[in-house]
Simulated scan of single mutants.
Amino acid sequence: MTQDTPSQPPKGDRIAKVLARAGVASRRDAEKIIEAGRVAVNGTVLDRAAYNVSPGDTITVDGKPIAEAEPARMWLYHKPAGLVTTNRDEKDRETIFDHMPEDLPRVMSVGRLDINSEGLLLLTNDGGIKRKLELPSTGWLRRYRVRVNGRPTEDTFTPLRKGIVVEGEKFQPMQVSLDRQQGANAWLTVGLREGKNREIRRAMQDIGLTVNRLIRISYGPFQLGDLKQGEVEELRRKVMRDQLGMEAEDPVGTAKKKEVKRPDRKYAASRKPSEQGRTRDRARAEYAREKAEGSGGRPTATGSKSGAKSGAKFGAKPSGKPAPKSRQRPQGKPGAKPQGKPKR
């Protein structure tokens, strides 16, 4: 028997969000499942989605407990042209999810690419990441390679760089560079920080150009690279945490380690040349002294006679050229062979 929904929901996450994280359905579809009376919390069947649950609650769908939420994950996907970025299409067109690998878990797209566009599309199993990256306030630059029909000049794109209004909708300033002219078409690189519906195509049309190819090549720090059309590649979790600012989950994150070690690396790098420099200075001074005095067997500063192995390295036989640079520091008794590399 269906019971009434509790009047005072506990603090926590919305039930639809929890269901989506558990892989039951998308957040929108989860709301429909709830309204159909198929979801219960602690034995109480819900009839509306406006309900929060806490980690200790028992949630069932059709009488079966849901799985625990998976860790947040992200993938890079090279979307081909001709596919719709949606779970189901009203016109029964093929979607990107019809062509995903079978072993891929339920994922959501971060933003969209229209049916004729191609290139990088981010996928995630986490609704929070999806919403965060779609917000204009995130400020991530999205870059596109765009082919237009026509012969534009740099001045052609001045309105786009300043920001324009198309059909009553304001578009923020874009970064536009004219790369090259190729016959009747021109290739551009366009960067923008918002993702309104068909924004680049509509903006280009407003200045008299028609887009006949559009490829997204980057989304913030994530690059399309050499990913082939239709391929999916999962991001390493460390990369995902670093790029999304999730280092707080790891108390010994990468950023912290680099800040601590960087001074040590610089110090170590600057110390080696100085040690080698002292050896070279010693060799050059010895060579200059022998050349000035004309000594062929006079003891050197290290106590070895010219002609000994250590003395030969320091230029005992004047030839009019500086002696070879030594990488060793003489040690031990006078005239003895240097023992290994200098201690640092």
Rank of each mutant, 00 (worst) to 15 (best):
R106D: 02
R289T: 04
V146W: 08
G230A: 13
T300D: 05
Q175Y: 11
V24S: 05
V84Q: 11
T254V: 02
T44M: 08
D13K: 04
D57P: 02
T60W: 10
F171C: 03
R282Y: 08
G183S: 04
V190A: 08
Q229T: 11
R142F: 03
S274H: 15
S326H: 15
L83G: 09
P9L: 07
D13E: 07
T279S: 13
V39L: 03
R236A: 06
K79D: 11
R202Y: 03
V190I: 07
A22C: 00
S306Y: 13
R21Q: 03
T156A: 14
P338R: 11
Q181C: 09
M74Q: 05
A288H: 15
T138G: 12
I33L: 10
Q8E: 01
I96L: 12
Q339A: 14
P10C: 15
H78V: 06
E118N: 14
A301L: 11
G37H: 05
G183M: 02
R73C: 00
R28N: 00
K64M: 10
R241W: 00
S177H: 13
T210H: 10
G332Q: 15
G311A: 08
E259D: 04
K162V: 07
S306R: 14
R145L: 14
I217M: 12
T95P: 08
K272D: 02
L19Y: 09
T279L: 09
T279G: 12
I59R: 09
G191E: 01
A72V: 04
T2Q: 06
V190M: 03
D250G: 01
R282Q: 05
I59D: 04
V190D: 00
A248Q: 01
K17D: 01
G311F: 06
N42I: 02
M74E: 00
K162H: 08
A67M: 10
P263D: 10
L123A: 01
E234N: 07
K32L: 07
A285K: 15
A20P: 00
G82F: 13
P342Y: 15
K321I: 11
A69S: 05
E234Y: 04
D47F: 01
V148L: 15
A336F: 13
T44Y: 11
D206W: 10
T138A: 13
R48D: 02
Q175V: 02
P324H: 12
R38D: 00
R112M: 01
G297Q: 15
P173R: 13
H99K: 11
V41R: 06
A268I: 05
M108V: 05
I33H: 03
R112T: 02
G340A: 04
K272E: 07
F222T: 09
T158F: 11
I96S: 10
K337W: 12
D29L: 12
R278L: 07
